[in-house]
Deep mutational scan, measured.
Amino acid sequence: MTYKLILNGKTLKGETTTEAVDAATAEKVFKQYANDNGSDGEWTYDDATKTFTVTE
């Protein structure tokens, strides 16, 4: 399945997607991506749209 990440950071904004077997796997990928790019904030997940959002 395709999962989407929306970044609403102070310095990093945008979207990216990943293919993953489940939401937990996608979350690990996205959290590593956000960490690698210095983005940290409040995470939410919408199962209906398969979208993670991180807001700083």
Rank of each mutant, 00 (worst) to 15 (best):
E42M: 10
L7A: 04
M1Y: 14
A48V: 11
T53R: 05
A24F: 08
E15I: 10
N35C: 10
K4C: 07
M1P: 08
N37D: 04
A48Q: 10
M1A: 13
K10F: 12
E27C: 11
V21P: 14
V29K: 08
E42K: 09
G38F: 15
K13P: 05
E15P: 04
D47F: 07
T55C: 06
T17W: 12
D47N: 07
E42R: 08
E42N: 09
E42A: 10
V21S: 12
M1Q: 14
T53E: 05
Y33K: 03
D36R: 08
T55D: 06
T16I: 15
K31S: 03
M1E: 13
D46L: 03
G41P: 02
W43F: 04
T17L: 07
N8Y: 12
A34G: 02
N8K: 12
T17C: 10
E27N: 04
V21D: 09
V29D: 04
Y45P: 00
D46P: 00
N37T: 10
G14Y: 15
D36S: 10
D40S: 13
T49D: 04
D40A: 12
M1C: 14
Q32H: 06
I6H: 05
E27F: 15
Y33T: 03
F30K: 01
S39R: 09
G9P: 04
W43T: 00
K28W: 08
K50G: 04
G38K: 07
T16M: 15
A20W: 02
T2S: 06
L5F: 05
A34S: 04
V54D: 01
V29L: 10
T16N: 04
F30Q: 00
E15K: 06
W43S: 01
K10M: 12
E27S: 05
Y33P: 00
G9E: 05
Y3F: 12
N37Y: 13
K10I: 14
L12W: 15
K50L: 10
A24V: 09
E42Q: 10
D36P: 04
N37K: 12
W43P: 00
A20E: 03
L7I: 14
A24Q: 11
E15C: 13
L7Q: 03
A48M: 11
D40H: 14
E15Y: 13
G41K: 04
K50I: 02
V29F: 15
T11G: 14
K10L: 14
V21C: 12
T2G: 04
N37E: 07
L7N: 02
G41D: 04
M1I: 14
Y3T: 02
N8F: 11
V29T: 08
F30D: 01
E56K: 05
G14S: 12
K31E: 03
K10V: 14
D36Y: 09
T16R: 11
T18I: 15
A23Y: 13
E15G: 08
A23G: 04
T44C: 10
S39Y: 15
K28I: 10
D22P: 00
D46A: 04
G14L: 15
D46Y: 04
E15R: 05
N35F: 15
E42V: 14
T16K: 09
T51V: 05
L5D: 03
T53H: 06
M1S: 13
T18E: 03
A23E: 06
T25D: 07
T51W: 01
T25K: 05
V54T: 02
T49M: 05
T53V: 08
V21N: 10
N37M: 15
K13M: 09
L5W: 02
F52G: 00
E27W: 15
T55A: 06
T25V: 06
T55Y: 09
A20K: 02
D36F: 11
K31L: 06
T53K: 04
T16G: 04
A26V: 01
W43H: 00
E56G: 07
T25F: 07
T17P: 01
F52E: 01
L5G: 02
Q32S: 07
D40W: 15
G41E: 03
T17M: 09
F30W: 01
T11D: 10
E27A: 09
T11S: 11
K31I: 07
A26K: 01
D47C: 07
S39W: 15
Y45K: 00
T16Q: 09
G9W: 06
F30I: 00
T2D: 04
D22T: 04
A24I: 10
K28L: 12
K50R: 14
T16C: 14
T51A: 03
V54Y: 11
K13I: 10
L12P: 06
G9D: 05
K50C: 06
D36V: 08
T53I: 07
G41H: 06
D47R: 06
A48N: 11
Y3I: 02
D22M: 02
L5Y: 02
E42H: 11
T25G: 07
Q32I: 09
N35P: 03
Y33C: 04
T51D: 00
T17H: 10
I6C: 07
A26R: 00
D40N: 13
G9L: 15
Y45V: 01
K28Q: 12
E56V: 11
T44G: 05
N8H: 09
Q32W: 05
K50Y: 08
K13V: 09
K10E: 09
E19H: 13
A20R: 02
G41Q: 06
L7C: 09
D22G: 02
T44W: 08
E19M: 14
V54M: 09
G14T: 14
I6V: 11
L12E: 08
E42Y: 12
T16A: 11
M1G: 11
D47A: 13
S39I: 15
V21H: 11
D36Q: 11
N35R: 15
T11I: 11
A48H: 09
K4T: 14
E42G: 04
E42P: 03
V54G: 01
D36M: 12
T44K: 08
Q32P: 01
A23L: 08
A48G: 07
Y3G: 02
A48D: 10
T55Q: 07
F52Q: 00
L12H: 13
G9F: 15
T55K: 06
K28V: 09
A24S: 09
T25A: 14
E56Y: 13
G38D: 07
W43D: 01
E19I: 15
K10P: 13
T17R: 07
Q32A: 12
D22N: 09
T55H: 09
Q32L: 09
F30N: 00
Y45M: 00
V54A: 02
Y45D: 00
T49G: 03
K50A: 05
D40Y: 15
V54P: 01
I6K: 05
S39F: 15
E42S: 10
F52R: 00
S39K: 09
D40R: 12
E27Q: 10
G41N: 06
Y33I: 07
A23M: 11
D40T: 14
A34I: 12
G9H: 06
D46T: 03
K13C: 14
T51M: 03
M1H: 14
N8C: 14
E42W: 11
T17G: 03
T49W: 03
T16E: 05
T17K: 07
Y45L: 01
K4E: 03
T16P: 02
D36I: 11
T25P: 00
D46E: 06
G14I: 15
L12F: 15
D47H: 11
E27K: 09
K13N: 09
T51K: 02
A23T: 08
N37V: 15
T53A: 04
T25Y: 07
F52Y: 05
Q32G: 06
G9K: 06
T16F: 15
F52P: 00
Y3V: 02
M1V: 13
L5S: 01
S39C: 15
T11H: 14
K10C: 13
L7G: 03
L7P: 00
T11A: 09
E15N: 06
T2C: 13
T25N: 07
D36N: 09
I6N: 03
A23P: 08
I6E: 04
D22Y: 02
A20Q: 07
K13F: 11
K28S: 08
L7W: 10
E42F: 12
D40C: 13
A26E: 00
F52D: 00
T55S: 08
